[in-house]
Amino acid sequence: MEPKASSASQPFWEATKEQKFLLPWCKDCEKPFWYPRVMCPHCLGESIEWKEASGQGSVYASAVHWKPGMPPAGDLKPPFVVSLIDLEEGVRMLSNVIGCEATDVHEGMSVKITWEKLSDGRFLPQFEPAS
């Protein structure tokens, strides 16, 4: 299932068309946050700026999907892995780690961003082993 952009996340999805990975930052408390919201979840500030992220992170936890539920947006066959990625900037996001065996993905593994094309010109951020 492809993601449906919300009003708060339009800039994020627009940038993915050029494979740019943006994170929302609060101008008031100067912290990044994830997922995109109409305000900052640290201080309720509504002044938000988008900054390009490094795309580097490490795996916090994973679930190897042998028996999936709803089909993913990407071209993945079970077993595929759904992981929480701690990004260098200090936020955590859910994604897939691809480019290796699902069962080889482990906590602390360094990963970097990669892109999966969606049907409408946007790209879905995924991760792959960094080395």
């Binding site: 299932m1 993601p3 936890a61 028996k67 999936p68 539920g69 759904v82 929480l84 859910l94």
Partner: peptide, 19 residues
Amino acid sequence: MEWEMPYGLRMPMGGYAMS
């Protein structure tokens, strides 16, 4: 629907599995 389902996270089991 925007940030989890596109990755195929099985609900609710996938969350418990990550824990």
